[in-house]
């Protein structure tokens, strides 16, 4: 496991900033399809740290992966939640949509409750409410 990480880090260093060919980083200003603007995002971990915001009650459910595409004119997001615990966990999540000016692109969404079984993954998907939404944050909280 460790060797893979090291190898990946080395590869990233070797390729440098202009590494258009690395998977997930083909397009400038995007990581795994998600807009990152000029943020320093070099890995899935960085992307998640930049896009996910825990709120309210903390939970040990974590976001492990995230990908974005553009469908029509609207952004489409998929995020994987993982419950590593040996117990059922309940979380609630929502997306916040941000426009080019960094302002809210739409009204606050409703919290969506999710039940996660022991040692399980759950993929949440979202489509932006409109084409003004060019960036987002995934917000979630524990519900137990």
């Amino acid at each position: 496991m460790k060797t893979i990480v090291v190898a990946a880090a080395l590869a990233a260093l070797a390729l440098g900033a202009g590494c258009a060919s690395r998977k997930g980083f083909e397009r400038e200003g995007f990581a795994f399809g998600c807009p990152v603007a000029d943020a320093d995002v070099d890995s899935m971990g960085d992307l998640i740290a930049a896009k996910v915001a825990p709120e309210g009650k903390r939970t040990n459910v974590v976001v492990t992966e995230m990908r974005c595409t553009i469908s029509g004119e609207r952004m489409k997001i998929e995020a994987n939640l993982e419950n590593d615990a040996g117990q059922i966990r309940r979380v609630a999540y929502k997306f916040r949509w941000i426009d080019t000016e960094g302002m809210r692109a739409a009204d606050e969404e409703s919290w969506k409750p999710v039940l996660m079984y022991e040692k399980s993954n759950h993929v949440v998907t979202a489509i932006a409410p409109n084409s003004k939404a060019v960036d987002f944050r995934l917000v979630y909280m524990g519900q137990d």
Partner: peptide, 14 residues
């Protein structure tokens, strides 16, 4: 109510 309305709207826009 909110979850239904939101899910339906997003899906319909697609």
């Amino acid at each position: 109510l909110q979850m239904i309305a939101e899910a339906m709207t997003r899906s319909l826009l697609d």
